[in-house]
Amino acid sequence: MHFPSSVEIIEVGPRDGLQNEKKFVATEDKKVLIQRLAESGFQRIETASFVHPKIVPQMADASEIVDFCNELGIFYIALTPNKKALERALEANVKQIAVFVGASNTFNEKNIRRTIDESLAECKEMFPIAKANGVFMRGYVSMAFSCPYEGAVSYEQVKKVVSSFVENGADELSIGDTNGRANPRIVYDRLTRLKEDFPDTTFVGHFHDTSGFALANILAAIQAGVTKFDTSIGGLGGCPFSPGSTGNVATEKVVEMLHAMNINTGIAQERLAGIAEFAKGLV
């Protein structure tokens, strides 16, 4: 087996972990969470989404959050689901942006009310605008293994979305087990094929823990050559359009596992338990 000397952990709790909470989390509490995470060594944190506040009320304070992140001087990622959201993010001086498209057409339509082709067409318009402003672009491929509506998702479905993102110049692609039903074998096989077909592309693993396989799936992804992973402090998160799915894999568990294997993350593990307790207290 192959074990890298280091792995990058991208903390997504402040956005992906909190976005579906019905009770609004106070902006000041979000700021405290972000600052504590930054002080623990995270080099990148997904902190906000410029989705319309009527759709995701939890992210209504996105502009204030990114102003705070800019003041802190940290590297952060903001989600922009469409051109209007991208324009708002650029006005707020966001330097790392994420867009997302589902590999399952049914999920994509339920999630953002567009077909895959419609979403990819809009992304094709968004990428040149972002690139012209010197923005780092991340592409999320949701439901990259299976879907609660369509069942198994084929490699060809995933490759279609990945190909479009690569052609548009994505800086990295996060491959998501959005409903948390993937297993180590399919993770290894799928990511190995993606790295073979797109050798110059940086891939990130994004695993939910519905089946309890997330840590094993991370190990399988590492064997496939992936060394970047999205995690959420306290295991917070979930998706309203993925019935039955639970939260993201817990940051503190991933860091504990990697450090036990002498894989460096640059994160102060001893601080994570307290931050996880604080994060869980917000929801």
Rank of each mutant, 00 (worst) to 15 (best):
A89P: 00
S142T: 14
Q19L: 05
L236M: 15
A182K: 13
F42D: 02
N179Q: 08
M143I: 08
N93D: 15
V255I: 15
F3T: 15
E270L: 04
P184N: 03
D117Y: 04
I34K: 04
F145A: 06
G281D: 13
S245N: 14
G151N: 09
E118M: 08
A182Y: 11
M59T: 08
T227V: 15
M257D: 01
F107P: 07
I263D: 07
G274Q: 12
G266R: 03
T115N: 03
V94R: 03
L258N: 04
E109P: 01
H259F: 06
V12Q: 08
I275M: 04
G139W: 05
G244K: 08
E71W: 12
R190C: 01
G13K: 08
I74F: 06
E8A: 08
G134Y: 03
Y155L: 14
D16W: 08
G102W: 06
F145K: 09
F145T: 07
G73P: 02
K22P: 06
S5Y: 05
E256K: 15
Q58L: 01
N179W: 05
P128A: 10
R113T: 00
Q223H: 12
G151S: 10
G237V: 11
V32Q: 13
C123M: 12
G205D: 01
I275F: 09
V158G: 07
I233Q: 07
A144V: 02
S104V: 07
G169Y: 12
D189Q: 13
D200R: 15
P243M: 08
I97C: 09
M59P: 11
N183W: 11
P199G: 09
N183H: 13
K228F: 10
L90M: 12
S119D: 02
E172V: 09
Q43R: 15
E156C: 10
E8P: 00
F241A: 05
Y188G: 04
K84N: 13
V158W: 05
N93L: 04
A26Y: 12
F24P: 00
H208P: 03
S163W: 00
D171M: 07
G102C: 08
T106L: 11
T106S: 13
A26G: 01
Q157G: 04
N20M: 12
A85T: 03
C147P: 01
S40P: 00
N82R: 08
F198V: 10
A26I: 09
T106C: 10
T201W: 03
V7R: 01
A221F: 00
I10C: 05
E156H: 11
L191S: 00
R193C: 01
G169A: 13
N168R: 06
C239N: 14
N20S: 14
K22Y: 10
N264R: 10
N70Y: 08
E11G: 05
F241R: 06
L282P: 00
A78I: 01
A38I: 07
N20W: 08
G13P: 02
M126V: 13
A98C: 08
K30P: 12
T202Y: 02
D200F: 09
V32S: 10
P199T: 04
